Amino acid sequence: MAFYLLLCSFIYLFSYHISLTVQEQIEYECVDIYKQPAFQHPSMKDHQIQMRPSAEFQATLSMESETSEMVNGKSEERCPKGQVPIHIPQSNYTNTLIHPEKTITAANLHYAIIKTFDNSTKKRYGGAQALFNLYKPKVLENQFSKAWIWLNHREKDMISSIQFGWAVHTGLYPDDHPRLTTFWVSDRHQNGCYNTLCRGGYVQVHKSIYPGMVYDKVSVLGKKQYDAHLLVGQDSRTKSWLLMTRKTLIGYWPSQIYSMEGASQVYFGGYAGGPTGAISPQMGAGTFPRQVRFQNKLACFMKQLKTFADDGLSDINCHEYEEYVNSPMCYDVWYRQFELGRGETLTFGGPGGECGMI
């Protein structure tokens, strides 16, 4: 009997130790929904959380059917009722790469994108979406590589911006997995940051999908492809900017903090960089898109490119966009419209290396 009790005690202590070890590896914490970082800003004192898009906003969404497997990370509820998951950044993360660039040709930052022409008509976009192909580009310490959408509004030297997609970012995260990632900065506050890393800004509402979440299945070139849908749009009723996957609300940037009335610039594509002087990282699948021509061997792609305008969510107008690559030795972009059997497809990427700039 004594041996049995001793054995049970050992099993309990061993299991407890394992439980603590697993717990220590968890990269998010469950916090009271009203005590997350967004509510530590004075402007958010009386804010009422928006738990779902307004009916008016929902009516503007028109999701296309898609045969490829949709990946949103693990779907189980991570937090108890009344709490939300907040990503915990690795402890040695610094702010050196937090703020967005004032010019698109900043040193050691590499773009392979399509972007709207200079907006002489003062057109305003109320958001954008894409179906993001998931890859795992190779990066070194403190480097990043992203599949990304920018919603920018520029007034002279001031910029407001919401950016989102997936990122492999070894300065922000403890590994090289692609993760749902967001960035914002407001001309009102000039204290923008990734995900939930600063007071005010992004409000998390979903209990399992959150910025910082790992996409646990990634594509292999020429083999099975995995995708994730992401959308950001301004709710016409609340004026907040909503982050969604399909018709599921993940979180939002409240109008009290982020007051931008429409974006004047929209970019889609790849973005990579890191400390000056280092070898530049891979982008996308690590291949040039024009070298991978067969439909079953696409380079990293984005599909279902849409923006919000006065008539709701609609396909982008190819005549409003131009291709832009600032390091053609290392990266490229290829926008293919209505390819047979695939619709419009934006492919981008490259091997990185010692990259010249133009």
Rank of each mutant, 00 (worst) to 15 (best):
Y93I: 09
M70Q: 13
E344V: 03
D187G: 10
F132N: 02
E339N: 08
D187F: 05
D216V: 01
I114Y: 06
T181V: 12
Q190W: 06
K45E: 13
K239C: 06
G286Q: 05
Q204M: 11
P53I: 02
T276C: 06
K247G: 08
D310P: 00
R336Q: 13
K156F: 08
A2N: 12
Y194P: 00
L313Q: 10
T103F: 12
T347K: 07
G343D: 03
V333H: 02
V266K: 02
L140S: 15
T94L: 09
P328M: 08
P328I: 05
L97C: 05
K115P: 01
E69G: 04
L298E: 08
C355Q: 07
K239T: 04
Q256L: 10
E29S: 11
L13N: 03
T287D: 03
G277N: 11
Q204D: 02
G201L: 00
V185F: 06
T347S: 14
Q83V: 07
Q204W: 00
K138V: 14
L97D: 07
F301W: 12
A147T: 02
Q90M: 15
I162V: 15
K45S: 14
L109Q: 13
F10W: 10
Y125N: 03
K115Y: 04
E76P: 03
S240C: 05
D310L: 13
G312P: 04
S120P: 00
L221I: 13
G127M: 03
K45A: 13
V325T: 09
Y252R: 05
G356V: 12
D227C: 08
D32F: 09
I33H: 07
A106Q: 14
S255I: 10
H110F: 14
W253P: 01
S264T: 15
F39I: 10
S19W: 02
T182P: 00
L230Q: 08
A55Q: 13
G349E: 06
Y210K: 04
L140W: 07
K303S: 15
L61E: 03
C198G: 14
E29N: 05
F57T: 00
F10E: 05
R124A: 15
N317C: 06
K207I: 02
H229D: 07
N72T: 10
A2Q: 14
H206R: 08
S120G: 10
T96C: 04
S65G: 12
W166K: 07
L298Y: 09
T287L: 03
T238C: 08
Q25F: 06
G251A: 05
Y215H: 12
G171T: 00
L13W: 00
K138M: 11
L5Q: 11
L6E: 11
Y210R: 09
D118C: 10
S145C: 04
S75L: 15
A272V: 02
K303L: 05
L242E: 08
Q337C: 12
G341T: 09
S219R: 10
K115S: 13
G171D: 07
D216G: 05
L346H: 06
E77N: 15
N326Y: 12
W150R: 01
C318M: 11
F57C: 13
D311V: 09
L221Y: 11
D235G: 01
W150T: 02
Y111C: 03
